[in-house]
Design a protein around this nucleic acid. Structure first.
Length: 240
DNA sequence: CGTTTGCATGGCTGG
DNA sequence: CAGCCATGCAAACGT
């Protein structure tokens, strides 16, 4: 995929550079991640870091961790402010990832720059985290099953069985247009985030790794982060 | 004929 | 016992 290739070069972190320290063109030299690791709480895989969230009726179960917020995201509904009315027509290859190349803006006013910096430095409010399963990491699927409670609480409401396109930015500043939908199941719905194939390749998802979703404080935009399985920095290269 | 998409099933956990 | 979710699978597609 040309897109992926394009990324490969944008992301120097391939061979031996720590992904977390990679600075992409958009980063402006500022690491947007406050401290992902500290967010994990030290919840055991099976236990859940029960949150302190007041309004949120959340309680994770299984290998996922929901992070409660103190005041910024009391009500999960708050983040449902921006409604994407994409209609959901062409879902097929509509998934795309676009680099936010602000540096290309010929007429970037100082105001805009300030805004960009503001966003870059804005703190990320952890929403929830999920440990990847084999299915999630499977390239053929290119989709991530989202914990129901988290999906309903933090993702934009889905209009109809179709689902919605949602803009998500990764912690490197890349923008992704993902498709958020659900499958009707015998017992309710199963929420899924599709269109992740390229991101999966880029980050080299593996079962056991974890994905965290944040809400950027500045503009409320969804941001996704990725962490390799339990702090193992000496095993970052491709196996075979 | 290899993929992708959507769904149904079954294991498992919490209530 | 109810519901969640990981996974298997068949229909639908694309090459």
């Amino acid at each position: 995929s040309p897109e992926v290739m394009q990324h490969a070069k944008d992301v120097p972190g391939g061979p031996s550079i720590d992904p977390k320290r990679v600075i992409t063109g958009i980063n402006l030299g500022v690491d947007p991640i406050p401290s992902p690791d500290s967010v994990v709480c030290n919840a055991s895989p099976n236990k859940v870091a029960t949150l302190t969230t007041p309004g949120a009726v959340l309680q994770a179960q299984s290998p996922l961790v929901e992070i409660g917020e103190e005041s910024s995201v009391n009500s999960p509904d708050e983040i449902n402010t921006s409604h994407h009315k994409s209609g959901g027509k062409h879902r097929k290859n509509a998934y795309k990832q676009t680099q936010v190349q602000s540096r290309y803006s010929p007429k970037t006013s100082s105001e805009e720059l300030k805004e960009i910096c503001r966003l870059s430095q804005s703190s990320l409010i952890p929403l929830f985290e999920k440990e990847l399963t084999a299915s999630d990491a499977d390239l053929r699927n290119g989709r991530l099953v989202l914990p129901k409670r988290c999906a309903e609480a933090y993702f934009p409401k889905i209009s109809g069985q179709q689902g919605n396109f949602i803009a998500v930015q990764d912690t490197k500043g890349n923008d992704w247009e993902l498709y958020y939908r659900y499958w009707s199941n015998t017992n309710g719905k199963m929420y899924v985030l599709e269109g992740l194939k390229d991101y999966i390749i880029l980050m080299q998802w593996k079962a056991g790794d974890r994905v965290t979703f944040y809400k950027r404080e500045a503009d409320g935009k969804l941001v996704m982060g990725f962490k390799k399985y339990q702090a193992a920095k000496s095993d970052q290269k491709s196996s075979t």
